[in-house]
Write a protein that binds this DNA or RNA. Structure first.
Lengths: 88, 88
DNA sequence: CTGTTTGAAGCTGATATCGAAGTCACATTA
DNA sequence: TAATGTGACTTCGATATCAGCTTCAAACAG
């Protein structure tokens, strides 16, 4: 069984990390102790608090078995690329 | 044209963000000014500095057009996942 | 040569992250 | 009733992130 999802913001990322933790049958305290961090951090990460360090993020990704993929494609070149992209 | 890649650590994430920025024809200073942050932060992010805030990360992902996907599956129950991943 | 733009990088101070420890309500057990 | 474990959430203090500013070398144009 594999769960997938696009990660647009901190909330979506937190949900995926929570899924990963629960699939491993770990509590927030167990995961925090394994990572050598506080339980509050795990909770804040899962809640989608935006101001967190990417360092801890990658540790948590490894511990929860969540894999991350990035994808980028070129903007349209045949139109004038002088305007800002309108997907905000 | 679309570039894809798994993001295992801060370095891989930085490379994808740099690709995204360059594909949009932006300099580090331009991107930094657009985000209201410092140029050094953009450089550090692209270099793969681990201790950076996810808040700025998601802003930078949007600005560079880089999309992020997460994927998680259930762990093996018959073995212990006690070993570290070997790409360190 | 002079000026501009680029990425790379140092320094300083204000802010906030984060670990540690604790609290609380709720659920499950004995 | 009491003990235990969970997620949610607080306060406190040391540390470090980050913006702002500056500098530097290289590339390029005028």
């Amino acid at each position: 069984m594999t769960l997938r999802g696009q990660v647009r913001n901190a909330e979506a990322l937190g949900r995926m990390l929570q899924q990963g933790r629960m699939l491993h049958g770990m509590s927030q305290r167990q995961l925090a102790e394994q990572l050598g961090i506080g339980q509050k951090w795990v909770w804040e990460m899962e809640q989608g608090k935006p101001g967190l360090l990417t360092e801890r993020l990658f540790e948590m990704l490894r511990a929860t078995g969540v894999r991350l993929y990035a994808e980028v494609d070129e903007p349209e070149e045949d139109a004038h690329p002088s305007e800002l992209s309108s997907d905000e």
